[in-house]
Design a protein around this nucleic acid. Structure first.
Lengths: 130, 130
DNA sequence: CAGCATCCTTATCGATACTG
DNA sequence: CAGTATCGATAAGGATGCTG
């Protein structure tokens, strides 16, 4: 499992390396909107405007391009329902779910720790003088 | 633990809400550099320029302001060692470690799934015509 | 070594208008 | 409804030079 000390691990992908192909994908997942989109889709499949309402603050343009990136990475499935008016349903793929579950856990943890975070911020601001 | 169906949860913090105080903190943690900084600090405490080398691609300016945000949120401890030349050691607080562990798990998962991601990207590009 | 200040470039984002 | 296209504002980011 562990690599020999002093030798580079023979892991093919490394998010810490600037030009690793995993970097763009990481940014889609942890970027400002990508994570939130995966997070809301973790509860259930949603249509475009439903997503837009749930991910508070995202614009139409940004949501569209976020969804395209996540679809291209294989995290989100886009299903066109040819009714009138047109409907499109977005859902998580199995791969997307495995990622979203971890994100949701992170979000929940952060939310639960917010009192500690706010306290730390307050202490910091006191210390440096606002 | 769970809230009653149909009633809004009485959770004080919600990352999906635009003006929730947890949003900025979430962005520090999942932003382009914050997550990577927490990720490398998860292995061991590091000095400024060590961090800079490990988080491949980050500039001095951005690293400094990323560290300030993480310190203010209470995730990172900054220790000034008054030698000459000056040294500063950055380490995780217990709170920071709880977050970093989850991030590292997410990174490892993403790295392990990169073959599937690249395959999905390829399929997508085929389908739409590059 | 660690990091602030300045300038300047570039990417991101949001608003608006329009299409299938 | 679910987008695309275009434009302009704003913020993020990089390069350089300087300080304790």
């Amino acid at each position: 499992m562990a690599s020999i000390e002093g030798l580079a691990a023979i892991e093919p992908y490394d998010v810490f390396a600037r030009s690793c192909p995993s970097r763009p994908t990481l940014e889609h997942v942890t970027g400002r909107w990508g994570g939130l989109v995966l997070g809301v889709l973790a509860s259930r499949p949603l249509r475009f405007n439903e997503l837009r309402r749930r991910v508070d603050g995202v614009s139409q343009k940004i949501l569209a391009q976020t969804l395209q990136a996540l679809e291209r990475d294989g995290f989100v499935h886009r299903e066109l329902i040819s009714t009138f008016p047109l409907r499109v349903e977005y859902s998580l793929t199995p791969l997307g779910r495995s990622v979203a579950d971890r994100l949701v856990a992170l979000f929940a943890h952060l939310e639960s720790q917010m009192p500690a975070v706010l306290a730390a911020q307050h202490r910091y601001d006191e210390r440096v003088g606002r």
